[in-house]
Design a protein around this nucleic acid. Structure first.
Length: 269
DNA sequence: AGCGGATGTACAG
DNA sequence: TGTACCTCCGCTT
């Protein structure tokens, strides 16, 4: 499920339901039981995201640090909460609502200092208003690594995943195999600015849509098509299908154990 | 029933 | 660079 937009949306969803509430905290599946016992009945005072990391602040006790990884999910519901299934790592619950966490890579109770250390090793996040794209450019512009790999490196830029990576490179006509130091400052600025807009829209709609109005199925008279993730895209998971713009075949390749998608005609070296 | 994948990361060597 | 981990879903038998 999760690229950065999902996690920022989840932070807001937690604030909506649990902020300033005394919250019941349990770990039906057991792996978080000790920490859940410490947190049970405490007040949620903050919910914050940086990239794909979610932090739930319980004023007196610490932060719950959650990373969904590839499979993790957070699901919300209204009270009464049903009996939890045995994969629920963490359940938050008030009289009105509940949230169930399953399959996360990380769910741990951490201190302020440990939280700060996580921020320190993450790059700027297009969804954090104060974050500075120049910090990312500093690394990108001196790197011989491909821009496709750099966009996925959370130390360089936080929150971009496989969908936004493929789509933002397509939208700017940038070949994924160009190196960081081969990009121009203008290209980087365009990528960052676009990610800010795309990811904000992602938070709002809770899905990734990247197709410009003039290229929508309605505008181009082609059959509607959304990806499994729910959004409309140019190249992601469209291997061997025709490019929406040039009609050429979308290519795919393995890059650092992830599937890369691009249009070799629209995205130039 | 059993498989292969999937919007991710960390660690070993 | 490869592998392990976490869960769910859709496809194949």
């Amino acid at each position: 499920m999760p690229e950065g937009h999902t996690i920022h949306r989840l932070a807001a969803d937690h604030r909506d339901r649990f902020l300033d509430q005394a919250t019941r905290v349990t770990s039906p599946q057991g792996k978080f039981s000790d920490s859940a016992a410490l947190l049970d009945g405490q007040r949620l005072t903050e919910a914050e995201a940086h990239g794909k990391h979610l932090f739930l602040g319980f004023a007196d006790t610490g932060w719950v640090h959650i990373h969904l990884g590839l499979f993790g999910k957070l699901g919300f519901g209204t009270a009464p909460a049903p009996p939890p299934t045995d994969t629920v790592r963490l359940r938050l619950r008030t009289d009105a609502a509940y949230a169930d966490l399953r399959g996360p890579t990380t769910c741990a109770l951490i201190t302020d200092a440990e939280k700060q250390a996580i921020h320190d090793r993450l790059g700027p996040d297009p969804l954090r208003h104060a974050d500075d794209p120049d910090r990312a450019w500093h690394r990108v512009s001196r790197s011989r690594t491909t821009i496709a790999a750099l966009l996925m490196d959370q130390k360089v830029i936080a929150g971009v995943g496989n969908v936004y990576r493929a789509e933002v490179l397509f939208r700017h006509g940038i070949d994924p195999y160009r190196t960081g130091r081969d990009l121009t400052p203008a290209e980087w600025t365009a990528i960052w600015t676009d990610l800010v807009a795309l990811m904000r829209e992602g938070v709002r709609l809770n899905r990734i849509d990247t197709v410009r109005p003039e290229h929508t199925p309605e505008a181009m008279g082609r059959p509607p098509r959304v990806d499994d993730h729910g959004g409309e895209v140019y190249v992601y998971r469209r291997a061997h299908q025709p490019c929406h713009i040039c009609g050429g075949e979308i290519r795919t390749a393995d890059l650092a154990a992830r599937n890369l998608f691009w249009c070799p005609t629209c995205q130039r070296r």
